[in-house]
Design a protein around this nucleic acid. Structure first.
Lengths: 213, 213
DNA sequence: TAGATTGTTAATCGATTAACAATC
DNA sequence: TAGATTGTTAATCGATTAACAATC
């Protein structure tokens, strides 16, 4: 079994999106140099990435078939079979994710929300019912959701993660800007806006101080 | 001038958050091995990271002063001086960011939103006024915002980015799940949920197929 | 055929980890 | 003092890039 680095995995959805837009334009074949030019990667890297997931070789002088690439990547990324998830914390961010239109095509099916706010409990957000947080340990096993999406305030994050894991969650998608400890057999992926902003700010400052010269 | 890798930059906000929680608990000094154990990094890496931003050395047997570390990191990350930004696209995700409570402490000040929806224009979201998108090129120079936060649908993303840059934006924080082309002097940072989910799914599948054996 | 593009193998680069003397 | 922790220098590791023969 090939292994994939985090960076590499992150590139595949970007390729896929690009190939879909090419397909919409009626493009049939695409070569690595062209992908490289459009997406700003090196062509060697693209070849490596696509070789790692394709079962058939590219053709010299033509490249690869766009339609085939889309099928391959959708299969590889699991967009064809649905994974179920719940959202814990239905504030602004959780609500946005409950309404996020792109998860369906990515094979992610959010089936319920949990919150402590009695105003929200029993209502629907993005077509999904909101349950009381203290029912999480009760409902999670029955819902059979593997992924818990965590969008609670920092102070509550570790606690709800512990509960989710104790109730059978196998993966945590953490949007709270804090470090969370999980057992080694549990998968955790953090979306940390503070980290992303740190990269942006640092580069922006570099740009600004260059201009000052 | 030292240079910082993307991974390294992303770690600093995580350190900072952790140091703040230590400070709240009344902890005075912290050593690399302890940080390493809590955050799951190697202690060598933590020493390197902290050395790169600290102007004073750690003390053998004690470590570093938590309060000093917080000051250093807040300074390094620019949390002390405010950067202004606008949000383009005030749907669910844009609205969540307009209401995101943590940007203030990170020195990011969102001063306005832009949208095409006449229902939203003129209203306030998260305390900020929403302006018509076609006023962007007019208003952006006057607002003097350096950062454009892009939360429009994929199909509109490249166009609003082009407009923002033409109107003086120096950095793009892109939340649309598509590749955006920008001139080389413009800073762009992508928050791509599809990429993050790809990493999560791949690891989860690895876990699941391991269990099947 | 010529040339663009491929896949493979080797070289480079950068980041992380290890080793170890210095020090409070 | 002894021992934990530091900072520095060297080794390792992995990912990206370069080189180049193979091929449609």
């Amino acid at each position: 079994m090939k292994s994939f680095s985090k960076n590499q995995l992150q590139r595949y959805p970007i390729y896929l999106k690009y190939f879909k837009s090419l397909s919409d334009e009626g493009v049939v074949d695409i070569s690595s140099p062209k992908i490289a030019k459009e997406l700003g990667y090196s062509e060697e890297q693209i070849r490596k990435d696509l070789q790692a997931v394709s079962d058939e070789a590219g053709r010299p002088k033509k490249g690869r078939n766009v339609h085939k690439l889309i099928e391959t990547l959708e299969g590889f990324l699991g967009y064809r079979d649905s994974t179920t998830a719940v959202i814990i914390g239905c504030g602004h961010l959780g609500g946005a994710l409950l309404n996020y239109p792109n998860f369906d095509e990515m094979g992610l099916s959010i089936i319920a929300g949990f919150d402590v706010d009695s105003q929200k409990i029993g209502t629907m957000m993005g077509g999904k019912e909101i349950f009381p947080l203290d029912k999480l340990s009760n409902l999670l096993p029955r819902l059979n959701a593997h992924i818990a999406i965590v969008t609670v305030p920092v102070g509550a994050a570790q606690e709800v993660v512990d509960t989710a894991i104790a109730s059978g969650a196998l993966a945590i998608w953490n949007f709270a800007p804090t470090h969370i400890n999980v057992p080694s057999n549990i998968v955790i992926e953090n979306v940390n806006l503070a980290s992303s902003l740190a990269v942006l700010s640092h580069r922006l400052n570099a740009t600004l101080s260059k201009e000052e010269k």
